[in-house]
Design a protein around this nucleic acid. Structure first.
Lengths: 239, 239
DNA sequence: GCTCGATGCGTATCGCATACGCAATAGGGG
DNA sequence: CCCCTATTGCGTATGCGATACGCATCGAGC
């Protein structure tokens, strides 16, 4: 038996258009759009139902006429912020396509860092999000592998993208709340002898470098390594 | 000027032993240990100050005599659950050592899945956690690279481990709340034509396979690819 | 035994998610 | 054309979590 799960219908069903009753003063699109804007600016922690209602000039409880609960709102936010998957060009083989896919995924995650906090929760993926997976599979479809193996590879690359994005966002958040990753942390507690290699790193830390570029380069570099590894292993499987 | 930030002292300072006053009925160790046990069983969402106090047979506010706030508690939980970094044997080169390091990291994350939810928040790392980084750097120290570059590589591998663990935990959580990743999701909404490759995957999904083993293999495989890539790029840099 | 730095914790505040119910609204069948 | 009813807006209320505050109490050293 399939349970109703109203949230799934919001993601997958057709938009509801009621026949009778007062005209709705809000719309799912407006609610979700404003929620995404709030989360972009203040993170998921800054997104509250009263706060969202205030931005929409509505009563708090009015929101619940449109969504069953906050969890469903977040699912819809993910679906909206994700956007449509890029159309990949696989004519040059899987590697350029998968590279493009990975970079596009990273761009989305960095544009909406709160997504890194919420994609973990148990939830149902929407059509847009599955569209991204489908495109990833399409990039890999030129490899003569069982579908399940291609799926593994798509998740592998996706996991890499997430992990590195998480690392970057985390690092930036820590840096924003004050200098922490400095030699002083260790010397002040007399622990510098326990972390000789970290001391080296901290001392050479270029705090003045433009953070974004370095992160992009680090990401691209790691991605190339990962794809190199895939290629040496599966390169011969090209159709 | 360095601000006080009491949480940092809890992580890095010496254990406080008060001279006067009533004997403390609780201890940091007991509080943090019980908190980790709760989070292991119920996730961070299941960890509340009143709930924790109840397990400890204490009043809720008593906890605040030991920790400044919940955030600091979580920092301490991470530090405790992380455990001591494994001593790596680098005599066979960087690759076996780094492999061991990555697997050990993964083991910790899967033993305490809530860590994946909280490592993102802006926080200060403790000595144990930095010890892991130090060990990762030690594995890479046999490569003749600038310290910063070795640091990048350590974060790269760490990011990969996190990303894949996140993916696995997320997938398991979704699966636990009912079948979702099935062809029916698509066919029920008449969208099967939009996701031909996903349909293939869903149809071949072996729901009966032992999940853990498959995930371990997938992780190990991806890690090998990543290290392969690093090796082909930096292999010549061995000291 | 007095003092003063601690501790245990009841009480209170504040913010959040969300259930419930009532009043206002408006398309459509009679 | 009007009333019926599905529907909306939202005030009010509940319950829970984090945490500030203050009081009663404790106990090591004088």
């Amino acid at each position: 038996m399939s349970e109703p799960r109203p949230g799934v219908e919001l993601l997958w069903g057709a938009p509801r258009t009621p026949a009778r009753g007062p005209r709705p003063g809000l719309s799912l699109e407006r609610i979700v759009g404003e929620a995404v804007a709030i989360a972009d600016a203040a993170g998921v922690a800054g997104l509250t139902m009263p706060g969202l209602a205030r931005r929409l000039d509505a009563g708090t409880m009015s929101l619940y006429r449109y969504i069953p609960g906050k969890d469903d709102l977040i699912s819809l936010m993910i679906e909206t912020a994700t956007g449509d998957a890029p159309r990949l060009d696989v004519s040059d083989g899987w590697r350029p396509a998968l590279t493009h896919w990975a970079h596009a995924t990273r761009t989305v995650l960095l544009a909406h860092p709160w997504m890194l906090d919420v994609v973990t929760s148990p939830r149902v993926m929407g059509p847009r999000e599955l569209g991204w997976l489908e495109e990833g599979l399409r990039a890999l479809s030129v490899l003569a592998l069982p579908p399940m193996r291609r799926f593994d590879l798509a998740l592998l690359v996706n996991g890499y993208v997430r992990g590195v994005a998480l690392e970057q966002v985390h690092g930036e958040a820590v840096a924003a709340q004050g200098p922490f990753f400095t030699p002083e942390l260790l010397t002040e507690h007399g622990r510098e002898a326990d972390f000789p290699l970290l001391m080296e790193v901290m001392e050479s830390f270029p705090f003045d470098a433009p953070a974004g570029d370095g992160e992009d380069a680090r990401f691209a570099f790691g991605l190339e390594r990962l794809l190199d590894g895939i290629e040496t292993h599966f390169g011969g499987a090209a159709v």
